[in-house]
Structure formats: structure tokens, C-alpha cells
Amino acid sequence: MTASQQTPTRRGALVVVEGLDRAGKSSQCELLRDYLSEQGHNVKYIRFPDRTTPIGKLIDSYLRGSANQDDHSIHLLFSANRWELAKSIEQDIAAGITLIVDRYSYSGAVYSAAKANPTLSLDWAWQPEIGLPQPDICLFLSISAEEAAKRGGFGAERYENETMQTRVRGLFRTLFERQKNVCVVDAGKTLEEVSRDIQAAVAVCVAQLDTVGPLRTLGPLAN
């Protein structure tokens, strides 16, 4: 078989994991990465914000409470942090790598809108996300703000308080009513049960990639 006759590389899947703080996202991302690797997939795991970039370092200072930013400007920095990696995400997916992403545009929009700033609505917050790579599936780890607050480490960063988390949960619900490819997972189950639910949902997503076609981009919120 000549190079020109070789079967094209099957693209990877873009899998996003979202949820309240302490919902178990990082643990489940790691379990999913290990599972997909064992299944023979080429997998990468990334998280947002990426605190290693120049923009990410500004965000890190803000989240740790050592720096203050206007609500609009910090929101745009979060979005810019995602745009910094947009091209590499597209390249990895095209090369057949499945990407697992811990937090993405959905968190970016709802956490900013949850501040209840009258000039920073959910629709305003979504605008800078339009054009970014669209996930093939977004897994939302559903847990109450009260349950999340009981978990270890809660309260270490700026947004980790029950009032904020309750607003965030409501806005996630509103946002997901206007989005496709969202799978709600009960994160109140055991670690193993949640992992199995995630694996099953992602397996269906991966099996449908040939039907879905090329990676798409995020569009405006549906009305």
C-alpha cells in the first residue's frame, strides 16, 4: 500500500468533564485516561485554566486571592487561556489523540455569570467562547453544593463557597438547556460507579465519531 492509499487517521474525541468544585472531576479524568489507554486509545489529559502560561499565571494569582481583577477582564483572561490551546487541541484531535479536558468554556461562562454582576450575563460571558473547539461530549458531574462543601479541600480558592457554588449549579443547568452533547452523571455515587457511568457514555461517543464527522466549533447559545 502506498502512502497515498493509506487509511486516513481516525480523529480523536474531545471529552470535557465539568462540575462544581470538589465534584471529583480530576479523579474521574485520571480514571478515564487510564481506561481509554488500556483500550488502546492515544489519550491526553489537560485542564483549564492552564496555569503554566503567562495568562495562566495571572489567573492563578487571582484564584488564590493574591490579586484582584475586574469581573469582565478576568473573564476574558480565562477565555484567552482556552484560546491559547485551541490550535493544539485541533491538531491533537486530527492526529487521532483523544483529549480529556478538566473544565472548559462551560465553567468559564457560568462562574463569571454567577458573580451576579448586572453587566456580566451568561450570554455576555459566552460570547468569547464562540469559535473554540466544540466537545464531542460534555460530562457534567452532578452534585449538590452542600455535598461538595463536605469534601476535602473545599474553600481553598476564591469560588469555593456554598453560596457561589449554588449559583453556579443553577447556571450550569440553564446553560446545558441551551447546549447539545451534554451527559449528566450522578457524582454522588461511589468513585467506581461514577467511573463506570462515564466510561459507558464516552464509549458511545467514540463509537459515533465517524458519523459525527470533523471536530466542530462552539456556536452562539440556542434560544
Results as ranks from 00 to 15, higher is better:
Arg178Leu: 11
Lys189Asp: 11
Lys115Ala: 01
Thr52Lys: 06
Arg167Asp: 05
Lys115Ser: 03
Lys115Asp: 03
Gly56Trp: 12
Val206Asp: 00
Arg178Asp: 11
Ser121Glu: 11
Cys138Ala: 15
Trp83Arg: 10
Val202Leu: 06
Lys87Cys: 07
Gln165Lys: 09
Ser66Gly: 02
Trp124Lys: 07
Gly188Lys: 04
Cys205Leu: 00
Cys138Pro: 00
Ser121Pro: 12
Ala116Asp: 14
Ile100Asn: 11
Lys25Asp: 05
Asp50Ala: 15
Leu175Arg: 12
Glu146Pro: 02
Tyr45Arg: 07
Val202Trp: 08
Thr190Pro: 00
Ile143Pro: 05
Cys138Ser: 15
Asp21Ala: 01
Ile89Phe: 14
Leu122Arg: 12
Ala80Thr: 02
Thr98Tyr: 04
Val110Gly: 07
Asp136Pro: 04
Ile198Met: 06
Pro128Phe: 04
Leu132Glu: 10
Gly65Met: 13
His72Pro: 01
Ala149Thr: 10
Glu38Ser: 15
Leu175Pro: 13
Ile93Tyr: 00
Tyr111Thr: 09
Lys189Gly: 08
Phe172His: 03
Ile143Arg: 03
Ser4Trp: 01
Asp186Gln: 01
Ala114Ile: 11
Leu218Ser: 08
Lys57Gly: 01
Lys44Arg: 14
Ala95Glu: 14
Gln208Leu: 08
Gly24Ala: 09
Pro54Asn: 14
Leu171Ser: 11
Leu171Asp: 10
Leu209Ser: 06
Leu20His: 07
Ala222Met: 11
Val204Gln: 07
Ala116Leu: 11
Ala207Phe: 02
Arg151Cys: 03
Ala207Leu: 03
Trp83Leu: 12
Ile130Tyr: 10
Cys205Ile: 00
Gly152Thr: 12
Glu160Gly: 02
Thr52Gly: 07
Arg103Glu: 07
Glu18Asn: 01
Arg103Leu: 04
Gly108Pro: 07
Ala145Asn: 12
Glu146Lys: 08
Val110Phe: 09
Cys29Trp: 04
Ser142Asp: 15
Ala148Tyr: 10
Thr7Met: 08
Lys87Trp: 04
Ala145Ile: 13
Ser73Ile: 05
Asn161Ala: 01
Thr52Asn: 08
Ser27Thr: 15
Arg158Lys: 08
Ile89Pro: 03
Gly12Phe: 00
Val110Lys: 09
Ile74Leu: 04
Gln91Gly: 02
Thr7Phe: 02
Ala3Met: 01
Ser61Lys: 15
Thr2Trp: 03
Leu20Met: 05
Met1Thr: 00
Pro54Leu: 14
Met164Tyr: 12
Gln208Glu: 14
Leu36Gly: 06
Gly24His: 08
Cys29Phe: 06
Ser105Glu: 07
Val15Pro: 06
Leu132Ser: 14
Lys189Cys: 08
Lys87Met: 11
Gln208Ser: 12
Glu84Asn: 05
Pro118His: 04
Glu38Ala: 15
Leu120Met: 07
Tyr106Phe: 10
Tyr35Cys: 02
Pro54Arg: 13
Leu120Tyr: 05
Ala201Ser: 07
Arg82Val: 01
Ala80His: 05
Leu215Ile: 14
Thr98Asn: 06
Leu191Ala: 09
Ser144His: 09
Asn223Ala: 13
Gln69Asp: 12
Gln165Glu: 11
Ser37Val: 10
Phe48Val: 01
Gln134Ser: 14
Lys150Glu: 13
Gln28His: 09
Pro133Gly: 15
Phe48Trp: 06
Pro214Ala: 11
Ser107His: 05
Ile59Lys: 10
Lys189Leu: 13
Phe154Pro: 02
Thr217Pro: 02
